[in-house]
């Protein structure tokens, strides 16, 4: 269990350092079952930090998206470090970003937070309804205890945990400079049963499913914006020269967009599930990405975001790579 007091003290300590510019973590959300991301500048702000089952966001997304402002003449660029609190799943994003040379290892301070699972707001809303006030959630044994609009409610972890947490194999951060709590035991395993189940459908059945899903898409790009692995300076999906996908939100363009993004994430998606969480029209995006994760593992024995020394999947090859379908 994470002691919030200890976490805040550690944060204060780090923020007080001369060579640290920012600290990214979580703070109380403004409403509902989720926290809000916190980007702190000063040690005095550290008391805002929380850690509980509402902390769904992936702070690693912020590292690469920080805008590097133009440096005024005569000044040097601010090369101070950025500190980031990460759960197990979030830490995989840090690992993968380092594999892709997004930044130097010594330009970040990683504070690892061993995690026992977060709440899926959709599941909570189904059970308890929506609310416009922030909700407090505590973990007690195999239950979550909610304080919603002043009332105390309870629900089983099994029914309320995010899907990714049910099968979590990395509750402890894979990379860190310091841990802010003791490591926890691993409880999950992932056999990709959901992917295999989906694969049993015939092509027309699969397309029927996706056609319905992609018709909902409004191309808000929330999925891309929140993804820790989407940090290109100019994203090809919105590029005009050349234009890969039109801006219109018909099924054709939407499908092309989602395939494009799933393709760009193949061998890179670290399954934080943020894309699906933020989708305003509830498209099951991880169903698409997990197919790639599974195939990458099976065909090339590769898992992104676990080994800092690994080479990016599609930058290498094995002369014995499978080629069953090739004439």
């Amino acid at each position: 269990m994470v002691d919030e007091k200890k976490l805040r003290e550690k944060a204060k300590e780090v923020l007080a350092r001369e060579d640290v510019r920012r600290l990214i973590g979580w703070k109380r959300g403004t409403y509902g079952y989720e926290s809000a991301p916190a980007v702190l500048k000063d040690a005095s702000e550290a008391d805002e930090l929380i850690f509980d089952p509402t902390c769904v966001q992936n702070p690693a997304s912020f590292i690469t998206l920080e805008e590097k402002l133009p440096v005024p003449r005569g000044q040097d660029p601010d090369t101070r470090k950025v500190a980031v609190l990460v759960k197990g799943c979030d830490s995989r994003a840090v690992v993968q970003q380092l594999v892709e040379k997004a930044y130097d290892r010594d330009s970040v301070i990683v504070l690892g937070v061993p995690c026992t699972g977060v709440v899926d707001r959709r599941k909570a809303a189904k059970m308890f309804g929506d609310t416009s006030e922030p909700v407090l959630i505590k973990e007690e044994g195999d239950k979550f205890v909610f304080t919603i609009d002043g009332e105390t409610r309870e629900g089983s972890k099994a029914e309320l945990l995010a899907d990714k947490c049910v099968r979590c194999r990395f509750p402890n951060p894979l990379i860190y400079d310091e841990l802010v709590a003791d490591e926890v035991a691993v409880w999950g395993a992932d056999e990709f049963a959901d992917v295999d189940e989906f694969a049993k459908m015939s092509p027309p059945e699969k397309w029927k499913f996706w056609e319905e899903q992609f018709s909902k898409c409004i191309r808000c790009y929330s999925c891309r914006n929140v993804c820790p692995m989407c940090y290109c300076l100019e994203c090809v999906v919105t590029k005009q020269k050349p234009q890969w996908t039109r801006r219109s939100t018909d099924v054709s363009e939407n499908t092309a967009y989602h395939i494009q993004r799933a393709w760009h994430l193949s061998g890179r998606c670290i399954e934080c599930g943020e894309c699906e969480r933020v989708c305003p029209v509830d498209i099951p995006i991880t169903t698409l990405n997990r197919k790639m994760t599974r195939d990458v593992k099976e065909m090339f024995s590769y898992e992104p975001g676990v080994d800092v020394e690994a080479e990016p999947l599609l930058s290498c090859y094995n002369p014995q790579d499978p080629e069953e379908y090739i004439m």
Binding site: E100, A102, Y231, P312, C316
Partner: peptide, 20 residues
């Protein structure tokens, strides 16, 4: 201006013609 310095191209080039 569009390059994010990930080095995928550097790894892939069979002739070592690209560097960061």
């Amino acid at each position: 201006s569009e390059c994010r310095g990930c080095g995928f191209c550097v790894e892939v080039c069979p002739f070592g013609a690209i560097e960061l």
